[in-house]
Amino acid sequence: MAETQSLDKSNLKFYFRSSDQQFSSSKLGMWLFLFTEIMFFGGLFVAYIVFRAWNPELFTLAATQLDTLLGAVNTVVLIGSSLTIALAIRSAQLDNQKMIINYLLMTILLATVFLVIKYFEYTHKFDLGIMPGALYTFEGIEHAKASVFFSIYYMMTGLHGLHVVIGIGLMIWLVVRAKMGDYSSQWYTPVEMTGLYWHLVDIIWIFLFPLMYLID
């Protein structure tokens, strides 16, 4: 008990009244960051909406080049990773040190699966000449502005993919610290915040999947 007390105190900054206050302040700060993330991706969603409103027929044609099955599998993979990171937080709350690490590793594994699938999707398109911007050489879509659809596709999924990579980096850092026994029910703020970030990455994919892959 004395040990957990000191662990608790060691993470408490002097400008907070209590650990609880510190924890909810961190959480509010994280939510404000997620607000900026929503507006960040929001700009791209607006580009998507404007361009689709102008060229609805192009979206029907271009979406046929996207593999619905791979998109659906990636959706399931990300939902699974959201569950495993939620379980990692739960393990921290229940003081189960070993399972924090195991669930984090499972999340990293699922995130990697997501990226591998994305890699195969991208390289398949590159082989066909479906490249972003001026590099676009594909001739299978009879539409003058086909390259713009794929520029939006690469920007949105690429930025999302970058978030997945950053998420993996954060989780590796969490695993290292968890192995040092830094997290317990007394203090697990970084695990909680990474979880919130990861769920947002999942939510963005939940919108990207039907908007990109499921257009008829």
């Binding site: 509010l28 939510w31 404000l32 997620l34 607000f35 929503i38 507006m39 929001g42 700009g43 969603f45 607006v46 909406i49 404007v50 409103a53």
Partner: peptide, 17 residues
Amino acid sequence: VLIFSFLFFIVFIGITL
């Protein structure tokens, strides 16, 4: 905070459209 971010996003879309 989340609901407001969503509302601001709708404003963003609306004014652009």
